[in-house]
Design a protein around this nucleic acid. Structure first.
Lengths: 246, 246
DNA sequence: CGTACCTTTGACGAGGATCAACTCGGGTGG
DNA sequence: CCACCCGAGTTGATCCTCGTCAAAGGTACG
């Protein structure tokens, strides 16, 4: 066997397939090594396990390595609101760095792996590596931007538009990770989709059935196949005005 | 007159009353001077004037000095979504730093002043001043956190709960700026409140009337007086469970 | 002082929540 | 191996909040 001695070390930033979506993006080799040195990789999380809970002291940020997670917060009156679904390459915890404690929960939706980035070390390293600092800021900015878009979705769009947008969003996210954008598996339940989109389970289920009936998509449990994504985009409200005016 | 020669220089970060809400927070004197040096202060913006538009190259971030602004984005199908209202001390533009162009619009709601922070200079200075970098990250994190909370508000709460939360949010923001938390003027129109909260003008107007009728608040045009803020908090869903269990 | 916009209030209807019943699949224990 | 259970998902019937449409003041600003 040509395996290296430190078997665990074959998981690292230098050879990570999704590094262009993650912290390493734009980093040179030396910086990349420094970053890789502060990252800890532990046992996988199983479905339902929490990476952290609201109220715990902020130790680390986490990058999804494989699998998926949901982040949610719990309001004073006790109901949970899912604020994001995380796929490989996504960073988790930016909403908490202004505080000394986590202000949300993050839970595995399936067996998943993460790279743990101790926050104190990231701070120190960011002071030394301007490129790293900039990438952190880019990622935070992207999250802000995405949240604003989501706000617009929740405020102005119908249930059907929300769901269509949701499916297209995941399609695009899978595509950018080198997976199929036409067929994929959604690891979350209907209830979780509904919670995220501000809809009930029943509405989500009804609309998936409707889109299936209209041959727009094929639904088989958690597996989704986009049969007619142009029409899905049309439903989502991404009208191709450019076409109309040309 | 004991005024300095450079009259304009009496407006600076060193003597700014809201610096603890803004970039200068935690900075030492030397750093503060360096920050102040890169900041540009220009003519006031009048109601309706844009600081920047979506698509323009990203030049600067902006800190509100006086007055107020709204930020909004315009979706493909042409309708605008207000994503934030900005009060003095707030920073504007974090949603765009992952891009080379602004991805939203920012418009004065009344005659207002801003401090312009050229982004390239902020980048350079952040490389030199770890404290500044950390404050930028804290502010970005706070914005992410606030957006998540808003998401929860829009997804789970009734129209009345949204409006009550909105009023309490502004009350708190005015308080932290040394203004009255009981009575204040909302510089935006009912339509803008509605757009932000995912409600129609009519609903906002009706609910303000209802709260007024029930002696919870007093409404006089844009002036709001919180007569019974405990009840408003109750309506907002911030139930004081702690009391119930004690 | 006129015009345009903002605000308020009423009547009505639709979209999605709620309530309820049933199916399906997987895990557990007898 | 099968009975049982539990959670997830689907579908139907009904209800209610809030959006839509309409019309009448109010207010601000040139």
């Amino acid at each position: 066997m040509s395996e290296r001695f430190r078997v665990v070390s074959n998981i690292n930033c230098q050879n990570c397939s999704i590094s262009q979506l993650c912290l390493p993006y734009t980093l040179d080799d030396s910086s990349l090594n420094q970053l890789d040195n502060i990252i800890e990789r532990k046992r996988p999380y199983h479905k339902g396990e929490l990476i952290f809970q609201a109220g715990e002291p902020l130790r680390s940020l986490y990058a999804v390595r494989s699998g998926s997670f949901k982040s949610y917060s719990v309001s004073n009156d006790g109901d949970a609101q899912i604020t994001a679904f995380h796929l490989p390459g996504d960073l988790i915890g930016f909403d908490s760095v202004h505080s000394s404690t986590y202000c949300s929960f993050s839970e595995a939706l399936e067996t998943s792996m993460v790279c743990e980035i101790p926050y104190a070390n990231l701070e120190t390293l960011s002071d030394q590596l301007p490129l790293l600092r900039r990438q952190v800021m880019r990622l935070m900015s992207s999250e802000i931007s995405a949240d604003k878009q989501l706000m617009s979705l929740l405020n102005n769009k119908s249930a059907e538009q929300r769901l269509a947008t949701f499916l297209l969003d995941f399609s695009e996210r899978f595509r950018s990770r080198g997976l199929s954008s036409r067929e994929f598996r959604l690891s979350m339940t209907r209830a979780e989709i509904g919670n995220f989109l501000g809809l009930t389970v029943e509405t989500v289920s009804r609309l998936l059935s409707k889109l299936h009936r209209e041959s727009c998509i094929t639904v088989d449990g958690k597996f989704i196949f986009l049969k007619d994504s142009p029409r899905l985009q049309d439903i989502a409200g991404l009208q191709l005005r450019a076409c109309a005016t040309s």
